[in-house]
């Protein structure tokens, strides 16, 4: 068993899990957070996408132990008691999801994009969503929704840093290449 200390949606968990446990299994089966979906289980479909230290990862390909000491955001942690996140609002308003199975992953991929790039082009949005397969929508309304959410977030002002400052985030990659302070 591996001893883990993981912050999930702002709350720290100290737990132990068998070493082969994936981050996705930890979230869904141990913590009961079923927003991240088990789709292909081999990293093709993106339905399991969560943010680890701000970066979008396929939770089915990451071991829970690799998330030790890191901060994980799932779709359950995106809305606040005050309301939905602007991305969730925009996805709803533009009917960007149909069956919705890809939704938690697509929305978190979009969040990782907007955190790093508050004013993305259409090509940048398509690129950010390329790892999230959707069989229903044709992606068109998703792309529109991400544009709308980016605009809403920029309009909200204070909490978003000005364009450019976050272009090269000093976030440690899950693989550890940049793993500065957190390893």
């Amino acid at each position: 068993m591996s001893a883990l200390r993981i912050t999930v949606n702002g709350r720290e968990h100290v737990l132990s899990a068998p070493p082969e446990t994936t981050l996705l299994a930890l979230l869904r089966e141990h913590l009961g957070l079923t927003g991240a979906k088990l789709g292909c289980d081999v990293g093709d479909c993106g339905a399991c996408t969560v943010l680890v230290d701000g970066q979008a990862v396929n939770a089915c390909l990451m071991l829970a132990a690799q998330a030790d000491g890191r901060s994980v955001l799932t779709i359950e942690g995106l809305a606040t008691p005050d309301g939905l996140h602007p991305l969730q609002e925009a996805f709803e308003r533009h009917a960007a999801l149909q069956c919705g199975f890809c939704g938690p992953g697509a929305i978190l991929s979009a969040k990782a994009l907007l955190d790093a790039n508050p004013a993305p082009t259409g090509a940048e949005i398509r690129d950010a969503l390329a790892g999230n397969l959707c069989r229903c929508t044709g992606y068109t309304k998703m792309i529109t929704a991400v544009h709308a959410a980016a605009q809403a977030l920029r309009g909200a002002g204070a909490e978003m840093p000005p364009l450019g400052l976050t272009a090269s985030p000093s976030i440690p990659l899950p693989g550890g290449e940049k793993g500065g302070g957190l390893s």
Partner: peptide
């Protein structure tokens, strides 16, 4: 039998509609 080699459109394959 999986999405690595059964290729379906991604957001990058979609044209202007």
């Amino acid at each position: 039998p999986n999405l690595t080699n059964y290729i379906m459109p991604t957001s990058l394959d979609m044209p202007e509609i």
